[in-house]
Design a protein around this nucleic acid. Structure first.
Lengths: 368, 368
DNA sequence: TTGAAAGCGATACCAC
DNA sequence: GTGGTATCGCTTTCAA
């Protein structure tokens, strides 16, 4: 019982050759129904399971995809893990996790490549040129998730990528805030050099300019919770009038910003200040808020990633960059108050509270 | 360039035997400094990296640990992925993700075992007796994370487990609410048959009884966001007086409950209703709330998991169940309001707002 | 259809 | 310390 059964054991018991066992477990192989059944019976009796590692050694395909991520506080990324993992599982692939804190990516890549990975999804670490070259040398396809290849370092189409239409998203945010009649519109930036922030900010600025407006104030939150809190304080501490709207570069920061706006500054959202976020975080993250956001579609992004991986792994197609559209979404987690307390009533009628029904539903219970 | 270099290639270039190459890459092996350097030089030139799969085939250890999880909405679990993955990486192990929606666990296990996993961490799916037997047969150590082995099905110590001290945690919650002077204390349950819920509820009930009190009302939220919202409505819709405190079986649900209490019912937390949660979720999840919670220590739980894995994988020690203590924590994300609006001021002085400083800090920026 | 035999890329054990 | 050789468990020709 101590050591697992091998194909040879099964062959002996079934009185066939070991090759026959292998064939019986290979979908399209040439085996008679009789032998296959004998083999399967023996296999069941011995609890035999083909050794995926040995198989990979000869087929040169491990059916393992590496997923490289940084820190996971941004609730967007767990969704990615979950969905990507499930999609790949359906295709017989599996996800090997690599957590890398930014600079260590190059070292991590060394480990990755030892596992004879079939593909790499880089979801939140930077891909250094060195790393890209290494992958290309070994012939391992890379898909950049939510970030764009560094064009300065290598050719435009040497690496695949999946991103949201961050430029258009930034425009949408601006148009929305302008339409709401705001004129003192601030921007809370993420990591200034990241492609997501650059594009969102560019689209945002363009659309404001096109309307004859401009960014009223700007602060940098580095995509972190604490950074966003500080940045928000800065935005509202200026000498002139406070902003009447803020576009925040992602939801993670938007939530932090709303905390400060409401709890520290005592302002109401959205009555006193309009806040628009970006990303797609699960309901648990925005539960307490009426959050207007430019939502990325995690599902569409994951689908695209899987498609690209398949293209690269099987068809040897040329690398592509996929841009997924995003859309403005109004989130509200609870239905409008049936009982109004004195304090809630004082805030005026709860307009549009039920404008868009909560759309998280339908998922199974989380174990705890 | 298309096919990666092997140890034979390196050996040829370095003019040594292939064994020498292998030794050069084995930490404690017997190689002269001269040859090792020649080998390393050649390896560098060829971009050689030892094939982990081939190694695993002969060593019979893959240095891969399977992590089985259900849906990840509960923000507690991404933390587990992150920390477990990092800890194992430090030891040269890696995490292979398996997402399983509960019942499919048995099928998933089949896939797992094909990868010659060194160990399994089951973090949110149920471990059926069949599955446990299969693992035992193959000799793969299993650690149940945040759940306890099904004692009815097999012996007490046949499987390892790591849990919080849920019983004590439930007691702590009760004692806290009693100390605050509450007498109409409700309980919002998770999944009724899960060990976490059973223990938390038991400790809670015991402590209330010991004080001559009892559970004022009870509803079931199934550990889901929507379930918790419904349950909260039920708790407060009863015929008699509404509860003045609620102990919620986990933070994921606590957040949903607070939404309903504040936004639908127009009550204030904690002034009108005390809410106590359980778990340890990142700041982004409770940002908007002053959340009192019985915090599990993700770090300690992960540490214990790694320890158990090591024991099982290397030392062949007997399975153990580790119980990690938990403690009451008061969370507040923003500092007390320096500027008070009319409305905020009306709510009275912000007592204890700075009782416990926010303790999420110190983490790096999340990419987006 | 079937079985024998040659790898896949490494480690382990053996003499030297 | 070093090089040969068997071996890990499987897929894949190649004959029969």
């Amino acid at each position: 019982m101590k050591t697992a059964a091998t194909a040879v054991d099964v062959a002996r018991l079934a009185k066939v050759s070991q090759s026959a066992v292998s064939r019986s477990f290979t979908p399209g192989a040439s085996v008679s129904e009789a032998t296959r059944e004998r083999v399967m019976a023996a296999a069941r009796k011995l609890g035999y399971r083909p050794n995926a590692l040995a198989r990979s050694l000869i087929t040169r395909r491990s059916r393992i995809v590496a997923l490289v991520m940084g820190y996971l506080q941004n609730q967007f990324y767990p969704l990615v893990i979950e969905q990507l993992s499930q999609q790949l599982q359906k295709q017989g692939y599996h996800v090997l996790m690599f957590i890398s804190d930014g600079d260590a990516t190059d070292n991590v890549l060394d480990e990755i490549l030892q596992y004879q990975i079939d593909g790499i999804v880089m979801a939140s670490a930077m891909l250094s040129p060195t790393v890209a070259r290494q992958c290309a040398d070994v012939g391992v396809p890379v898909v950049l998730f939510n970030r764009v290849p560094d064009l300065s370092a290598f050719g435009r189409h040497s690496t695949c990528s999946v991103t949201s239409d961050n430029l258009r998203g930034g425009q949408l945010a601006a148009e929305l805030l302008l339409a709401r009649g705001h004129r003192r519109i601030a921007f809370l930036a993420g990591l200034e050099k990241s492609s997501t922030n650059l594009e969102r900010e560019r689209g945002f600025g363009q659309a404001l300019q096109a309307a004859g407006a401009g960014v009223y104030r700007r602060a940098v939150g580095h995509y972190s919770f604490e950074g966003a809190q500080e940045a928000t304080r800065a935005l509202f501490a200026g000498p002139g009038r406070a902003p009447d709207a803020v576009f925040v570069a992602n939801d993670h920061m938007a939530i932090a910003a709303m905390d400060v706006i409401r709890q520290e500054l005592g302002l109401r959202v959205p009555q006193d200040v309009s806040v628009v976020g970006f990303d797609d975080v699960p309901q648990a993250a925005w539960g307490a808020y009426r959050l207007t956001t430019v939502a990325q579609s995690v599902g569409a992004m994951v689908d695209a990633t899987v498609t690209l991986l398949n293209e690269q792994m099987h068809d040897g197609a040329p690398p592509r960059n996929v841009v997924v559209p995003c859309r403005v979404v109004e989130r509200a987690s609870v239905r409008p108050a049936p009982v109004r307390s004195a304090r809630a009533a004082a805030a005026g009628p709860s307009r549009t509270a039920s404008a868009t029904p909560a759309r998280a539903g339908s998922r199974r219970a989380a174990a705890s």
